[in-house]
Design a protein around this nucleic acid. Sequence first.
DNA 1: GCAAGGTC
Length: 812
Amino acid sequence: MRTVLMVAEKPSLAQSIAKILSRGNMSSRKGLNGTCSVHEYTGTFAGQPVRFKMTSVCGHVMTLDFLGKYNKWDKVDPAELFSQAPTEKKEANPKLNMVKFLQVEGKGCDYIVLWLDCDKEGENICFEVLDAVLPIMNPTHGGEKTVFRARFSSITDTDICAAMARLGEPDHNEALSVDARQELDLRIGCAFTRFQTKYFQGKYGNLDSSLISFGPCQTPTLGFCVERHDKIQSFKPETYWVLQAKVNADKDRSLLLDWDRVRVFDREIAQMFLNMTKLEKEAQVEATSRKEKAKQRPLALNTVEMLRVASSSLGMGPQHAMQTAERLYTQGYISYPRTETTHYPENFDLKGPLRQQANHPYWADTVKRLLTEGINHPRKGHDAGDHPPITPMRSATEAELGSEAWRLYEYITRHFIATVSYDCKYLQSTISFRIGPEHFTCTGKTVISPGFTEIMPWQSVPLEESLPTCQRGDTFAVSEIKMLEKQTNPPDYLTEAELITLMEKHGIGTDASIPVHINNICQRNYVTVESGRRLKPTNLGIVLVHGYYKIGMDELMEVSFSPLAATGKPLSRCGKCHRFMKYIQAKPSRLHCSHCDETYTLPQNGTIKLYKELRCPLDDFELVLWSSGSRGKSYPLCPYCANHPPFRDMKKGMGCNECTHPTCQHSLSMLGIGQCVECESGVLVLDPTSGPKWKVACNKCNVVAHCFENAYRVRVSADTCSTCEAALLAVDFNKAKSPLPGDETQHTGCVFCDPIFQELVELKHAASCHPMHRGGPGRRQGRGRARGRRPTVKPSARRPKDKMSALAAYFV
DNA sequence: GCAAGGTC
């Protein structure tokens, strides 16, 4: 007979599930670690009779840590922990000998069914179990499937049986996401903790810097406390004014009325309203209403709510409350105390636990009444698929439990009785008054039936005097009307209960770990617990959190500045997503693609325009035209190439006039004419956008040659000058404006050597006309053919030897 | 000596 090994996440679940699947017909024994049990029974699986072995692990089998040698704080740079230090998986709890236990039980098994909790951590534990067990299980028979995953959402007969009937496979990706989470937690936590601790160690006399920890959960937890502290510190009280009126209800009773305007923040305005009402002798009833309202019974109790109430009403910290609850659970007084669920399964036996309380000295009457008159169905809550809500399982007295455990038990029990009790019903009466032109209201509540508030008296509708019976048109004598000056108050420090709510809302920690994180920030001396279990950050806690904000800077900057995506104007299209990028003019000017979340720096100190919607042939980004002004130079550039140079000999920030692309029409290769007359490495490049005041500009220095004014077309020819190797320019003029001899409108020649062009070219500097920069005798006038390649050949090799003075005269 | 997750 083949054997099916089944593994749950914890011993209690293995037992419950085995009980359901075996219909109570199983034999149980303890495993070798003394903690996990094995429940065995027979049944059918995959159409054959089999033996089932249901057991469990105890949470995670493995834990992630750095290799042992990285434990030496003095010898390891924390930065190494952040990225390079290798990690290894170790047994989470060596005492439990979990791997050995799984292997002993798994040996000789043919199939495995994974009953781990149905969340990511559970999925990860599936693979921890498989790593331990698969190598020692029987070999598979002809590719038959042997690994199964049971997916269930509650521990009920129907759900468990349905899961068994529809087994799937474990999800490796979910498990891997937990591996990633573990590694991030470890690296971030350890690296920053060691860095902070070492940084502050021995620096300040009054600071206990033995351990200054940082973590992805504990630090945000502390952050909430400091945030509240900052709100208190920066609070500026405001004065406001309220009108308060009293009317005579009966002979000896007066009624306090609330002003419909609630309050005003301007004294003179308040005074004006007072003046308008203070001489009135009567308050007139304008309307009355009576509405029946209900205060809902509580949802069934889950861990987080229990911790909240333990803190706020019992003054019991979450860690302590959890320990107490666990003891009550192991002693059989309450059900499993770690659950997110606030919904009882349909077939949950609510009367059983209730009957247990029928003779309790404190609430026997209430319970007996519920049992005889019928219980109310609990409200529909949230089913997280883990465990039923926290429920008292057995009656207990204070003497039996001791004061602390009793108080928690009493609360859990009262809460449970409340969930099967009726809502509290009350009558809300409202009378609307008018005194002069101003409106006032008076409300009163009277309880119709207390419902659950009988067992939870602290939830009672506060006793209020009932309102006099009256109707529209009645009048009451005004006994007093006055103006009260009050002030807005700062919030108080965060209560533990509020912190738990914030953590839950922001997904910091889990129901099981929230108490640990809160405990951590207390133990590390980041916060102290004040009266009413309010958490007041210490100087250390405040300084740390403020420091993190400063490092992040965003928090401070965003107050005054808007993010990139919300700034700038659409200019050119991104080559990746083909959406418009925004041009941010503020220095340093850049283009930002909000879709790709990429920023491209642009050359500074000039203007940027779209360049005819032309695109770079390399990356499809739309080109932009950079210009230093009408008398300066301009060139197209590709935003992507300028930030990611496409060729080896290009540098960041280069435009198309320095691009060595062999065929692109905007490149140096196609528009370059010859070496610069002034600088060593520059090349004069035709600016194709400059007509009709054509320019040739050096792509390195600020030399600009103005030429061929009024030509309607200037092109760089493929031919070169036979004397100086510079590229020839082909120039076209209109007939009317042609400066060419005869009636010529076209001419092709060398810009340096051609006598006809001599009159048509003038050298200037882009930025300055200082004589120092003018070309002249003795200065360097190298130039040469640069087309198709950068002038990598030394200028001197191609410099015409006998033309120095001629060129000097020519260009000045 | 460090994190966070699971469970005892």
